[in-house]
Structure formats: structure tokens, C-alpha cells
Amino acid sequence: MTSLSLWWKNYSELGVAALLGVAGFLVLWDASTITAPYSMGDPVGPKAVPRIVGVMLLVCAAGLVVQVLRGRSAPAEEGEDIEPGTPTDWKTVLPLIALLVITSSIVDAAGWVIAGFVLFWGAAATLGSRHWVRDPIIALVLSTTSFYGFYLGLGIRLPAGLLEGVL
């Protein structure tokens, strides 16, 4: 491991500070592009609060940099199903992200039943489930019942997509 990646391992939280800083600049820049004439009915105007928020983000970014460099990084959140102290398992997280991207891009054309089926089965498999019969059945039941549940129960017509006419 190079010294740089070692350094980053300890100070990766600086990335959060950078994100806050970029967000702060974005908010301030956006506020500067607003052109609103002064009005008696609204002395504060639409720019004041974005300016406050932008400055707040920048101050927090700076404060976080100081804290991280002094070695006070925050403990990560724990939970019931979490193995504390393990490194981030990107082999699980990245496929899940990819699955959400796939689902989002096919849902309009393919319809909710197919997209939801892909999402559930794919996510279950990514998370370690290997029941080649049970998993797809559960996925299919979930995606079809949610389709009809939303239509009949809430009056929301999810796209039928490829299965238009079948459902």
C-alpha cells in the first residue's frame, strides 16, 4: 500500500468536508445569480437564507477539516445487523447501486412488474441469497401484488410497460 492510500485511509473523512465545501460554494454561487429587485413587502428577499446556509456549510466544512486533522474522526453508525469494525463491502454495495440504476432506467419502458422483479431478485442475490426457485417466486409475488395493490388500493396506475394488456 502506498503512503498516499494509507494517508487517505485515515483521513478519508476530509472527502466529507470537501463535499460540504463544494455544496457551500454552490449555494452561494446560486444565490449570487438570483436577481430580485428590493421590495418593501419582502425586505429579506430570496437571497438572504441561501447566503446563511452557504456560509454555514463552509464553516462546517472548515470545522470538520480541523477536527479530522486533529484525529477526531467520528465513529460510524452501528446497528442490529452490522458487524462492527469491518471494512466497507463494496462488492455488495456497488452491485446494489447498479441495480437501482438499472431499475430506474427500465421502469418506464418495461413496467413496474418487471423492474420490481429484477430489483428484488437481484438485490436478494447480491446480499447472498441462493435459492434459485424461492427467490424469483417471492420477487414475482411482490412485484405483481404491489402493482395491483397500488392500482386497486390507492388508485395509482404504475406503468405496465411490456406487459401492457397482460396485466
Binding site: E77, G79, D81, I82, E83, P84, T86, T88, D89, W90, T92, V93, L96, I97, T126, L127, G128
Partner: peptide, 8 residues
């Protein structure tokens, strides 16, 4: 995502 990254 968070739990998936550290699943027991």
C-alpha cells in the same frame, strides 16, 4: 446500503 456494506 449501510447495512449491506457491513452485513453480519
Amino acid at each position: 446500503f449501510w447495512i449491506a456494506a457491513h452485513l453480519r
